[in-house]
Amino acid sequence: MNTKIGESRGDRIFTICNYIFLSLLVLSVLYPLIYVLSASLSSTKAVASGRVWLFPVEFSLLGYKTIFEYSKIWVGYGNSMFYMIVGTTVNVILTILAAYPLSRKDFYGRGIFMFLFVFTMMFNGGLIPNYLLVQDLGLLNSRWALIIPNALSVFNVIITMSFFKSTIPNELLESAQLDGCNDFKFLFKIVLPLSAPIIAVISLFYAVGHWNSYFGALIYLRDASLFPLQLILRDILVQNSVDPSMMGDATQLANKIGLQQLLKYSLIVVSSLPVLIAYPFVQRFFVKGVMIGSLKG
């Protein structure tokens, strides 16, 4: 497609239009992000009166200072870290345990098991039966309610399985078996070391999922000390409820309202930071995940 030389006039116009279209699209994706970042670095007055539109107005770090004093947010941060790390570990272990046997041709009953798994992607019991199950298991208002019911995603099992199928040749298994290697050993000593890319991909999918989810916490948790960050964000960003005692020494009401506004912007930046900082480095893994997922399992 590299035919820059000798482009016809029509093609040149096309190329120019293409660049303009793409630039406009990129800018419109970028603008809301820049706006939030700039507003978070502005003064309460500028934010409250709506004077920020692109760059920070009356630069100040007050929003971030307030966040540092708002202890609920840090409790949420810690909880989210816990859910993400423990949850992802459980997820990855279970996914491999499911995907490896399913990838083996000599695993008798594979077809039935596969059907059992895939069927759950198309049909489910619904919200209420799931809630009643968690209640019956005594998991309500416990940390495990966010980890055990989401211990496995069938979609990730399928992409892991197709990875195993395509990268672990049958000959490798046969020769290992001739040398007296059993299935446990083969999985842990040979398959897993060869599977670093797929483990990275599914870990990322699971980790982002845990970090970003709020609904499980909303229905299963009552105790505020267990809340993940997203649920606390929901109270502040969506429900507009800020605990005034946590906002330091902004005594006047007008100040408080302005500060509450400012707090939201800085909060978005702080809560999205871990994901957005890591994102450029791990982007290729996500892209890879989408590609593997797009191959039929």
């Binding site: 989810s213 964000l233 994901v275 994102y279």
Partner: peptide, 12 residues
């Protein structure tokens, strides 16, 4: 840039 917003949580 265009991939980035995908990773923003629903709440944010």
């Amino acid at each position: 840039i265009t991939y980035a917003p995908h990773f923003i949580s629903v709440v944010v």
